[in-house]
């Protein structure tokens, strides 16, 4: 199934990303305060969102793997970690490039930025930990515990702008309605969908490779 879905997912990603980029970089009007600098939002917000979504996926898969001892769940966690690290890195770099013209500095030890940096370290920590043991199962279990405990960083990232006084602006999208005009909002939603599709594609490709690596000696993999 994954083999049949991947071309569709990559096609959908390309179409959505093209539409989102045209909308965000060309059609959307400049922000009245931030000018055209605000256009970084179309790459920063989706990557920041995905950085948290991927870690949430890892935490849930880890819990499933630990509680019900499903090996596939640990494979999902291992496959998702490098993808999440990439999205977090993009969120941090694009955030810094947005911060310089808006705040006058690339980096500040602000609650939102610091908790997002901790998330990147959690991804690196997970990747280092699972490979630190000669026995894969022990590595999986240690990594799963780190992913579950590390998930406490997700609400901290999300609510940091409410709990503490931060330089970072509040949530761009709210369930109660967003102050963004539709002309600025739709490219953001399209880019978020594009990033989600790309994540799904990356996860499928990485998961197939991860399963093949783990089940290398199994008879059934010969049929793939």
């Amino acid at each position: 199934m994954a083999g049949r879905a991947t071309p569709w997912l990559i096609g959908l990603t390309l179409v959505l990303m093209a539409a989102g980029l045209v909308g965000g970089l060309w059609l959307a009007p400049p922000d009245y305060q931030m000018g055209d600098g605000f256009r970084i939002i179309y790459i920063h917000v989706p990557s920041a969102l995905l950085s948290m979504v991927v870690f949430a996926v890892m935490a849930v898969a880890s819990a499933v793997g630990l509680i019900w001892r499903i090996r596939m769940a640990h494979a999902v966690t291992a496959a998702a970690a490098p993808i999440g690290a990439a999205f977090t890195f993009i969120a941090l770099v694009t955030g810094a490039l947005w911060g310089k013209p808006m705040w006058g500095t690339y980096w500040v030890w602000d609650a939102r930025l610091t908790s997002e940096l901790i998330l990147l370290f959690l991804y690196f920590g997970y990747l280092a930990l699972v490979h630190a043991f000669p026995d894969r199962r022990t590595g999986d279990q240690a990594g799963a515990i780190l992913a579950i405990v590390g998930a406490v960083d997700l609400p901290i990232i999300h609510f940091s702008v409410q709990w503490w006084t931060t330089l970072h602006q509040g949530a761009t999208l709210k369930l109660s309605g967003t102050p963004m005009p539709v002309s600025m909002l739709w490219p953001l939603l399209v880019m978020m969908l594009a990033f989600l599709c790309y994540f799904a594609w990356l996860l499928m490709v990485r998961l197939r490779a991860e399963i093949l690596r783990r089940e290398y000696r199994a008879r059934w993999v010969e049929k793939i």
Binding site: D36, G37, R39, I43, A86, I90, V93, L97, W98, P101
Partner: peptide, 19 residues
């Protein structure tokens, strides 16, 4: 980009290289 080109384009460049 209204004078923000040196921030906007590197942001998109880094993102696409990493993706």
């Amino acid at each position: 980009m209204g004078g923000y080109a040196r921030f906007v384009w590197p942001a998109y460049g880094v993102a696409f290289v990493v993706l």
